[in-house]
Simulated scan of single mutants.
Amino acid sequence: MQQLTNPRELRGLAILSQPNTIIQMSKNEWDVRSQSKDAYYRVTRKFVSQSKTDHYAWSCSCPDFTTRNMPCKHIHAVQFSLKLAGDVQEHSAPAAIEEAEPKIVCPECKSKNVRKWGIRKTQYGTIQRYACHNCNHTFVVDKGFCRMKNSPETITLTLDLYFKGLSDRKIVDHLKQFHNVIVVHTTIIRWIKKYLKLLSKYSEKYKADVGNIWHSDETTVFIKKENEKRYYQWIWNVMDAKTRYLLACQVSETRYVKDAQKALKQAKSVTNVRPDAIVTDGLMAYKDAVKNEFYDVSAFIQNPHIRLKDFETKPNNNILERLNGTFRERTKVVRSFDSGIGAEEFATGMQTYYNYIRPHQGIGGMTPAQMANIPINLLGNRWETMIGLSVK
């Protein structure tokens, strides 16, 4: 079983997992940032042609290579980056950006032969009406908010405030105080359940163009259960290090191999690549789970599992620990899940919010979906745009 056990390979992988650490200066020269000081080392390769085999001779200006004349962590980092770049180019397929405005189609006969047919006045403004040339049916375009008593702005504001950590009763107070909108907290719950179900189906439509280094970890969530004072379930998260795209978010009652494998299987189904490294903590369930899902005898790295020995050594699981903190910001307000928003609905909603709605500072203020080349143009009110696309 081929696995990353060489310390220099692991350190090279840690260099690659950090942003702006490798700068290509020419076709065969790279500057690699030092991990211990503010400096760069020059890595070069030279093509060597021999009678039997052709290969590259690598060198680095760092003290480790100069002293030992063997591949250092900086050379391994460049080699990994070249392989990952080749994999991304091989597996990436261009896709057209989906338009935010849906095509106008008659809901009765599905004909595109329609025309504008006046407007309809509502308490939130005017809505364009259409008429079908084929069946004479008149209609308005459903953007996800038809027959709702409140405006799309109010509903999407509710969704955004909920996932930013406000309780449903605090949202009720906010709407009343600042927008003069009076609703009850059970209405907030109904909106969240309705639109989370709609968005979760739509978010499964595209494959994510992610990198080859993934991280996996689990966190707890408190569930109300009859006759039990403390009852917890586990939320399993799998994230791509390059794009911060949350590949899987699964809920389970236990932490066995089958539970870890379920999350890894979901992550595998939404991507176009096989990871070269899956970084996990010391939980033993990951050992067999990663092997069962990703072991490949023909791959460059047959078993991609990297089990962390501690929290200080790189590569570490800090990006997932930060994600777990984002989850706890929401769950400490909810305190527990019962018949309102269930744990599985919450996990699905957080995955959609994290990937498509919430900008991430670690990737330059973009959303993970944008970094993963998901062809959805979410501008302005991202909730409203995505709901409209989901209805279409």
Rank of each mutant, 00 (worst) to 15 (best):
K332Q: 12
G364T: 10
R335E: 13
H360M: 02
A343G: 01
I357W: 12
F327Y: 15
G364I: 11
L320E: 13
Y353E: 02
T367I: 09
I341C: 04
M366S: 08
T348Y: 04
V334G: 00
G362C: 08
R322M: 10
T352L: 10
G340C: 02
P359C: 01
A343L: 01
R358K: 15
Y354E: 11
T348D: 12
R358N: 08
S339R: 00
T352V: 15
E344N: 04
T348I: 04
T367R: 14
N318G: 11
H360N: 15
T331F: 13
G364S: 03
T367P: 05
F327I: 14
Q351N: 11
N324K: 07
Y353C: 00
T326Y: 09
P315R: 13
V334W: 05
G325D: 09
R335I: 09
G362P: 04
R358H: 11
E329C: 09
G349I: 04
F337C: 15
F346I: 08
S339P: 01
G349S: 01
T367S: 09
S336I: 00
G349Q: 03
T348P: 01
Q351G: 10
N355I: 02
N316A: 08
I341K: 03
V333L: 00
K332L: 09
I363V: 05
Q361A: 14
Y356A: 05
Q351K: 15
I319K: 13
V333H: 02
P315V: 13
N355E: 07
P368M: 06
G325Q: 13
G362L: 09
I341M: 07
Q361P: 01
I357Q: 09
N324S: 09
M366V: 03
R335M: 10
Q351I: 06
P359V: 05
E345L: 13
M366T: 07
Y356P: 06
N324P: 04
P368E: 10
H360E: 02
L320G: 08
P368S: 05
T352W: 14
Q361C: 08
V334A: 14
V334T: 05
D338Y: 10
T348H: 08
A343Y: 02
G349H: 02
L323Q: 14
M366L: 14
A343R: 04
G342S: 15
F346A: 05
Y356H: 14
M350L: 14
E345I: 06
Y353M: 00
I341P: 02
F327K: 06
Y354C: 06
P359T: 04
I363E: 03
A347F: 09
R322C: 10
Y353A: 00
S339F: 04
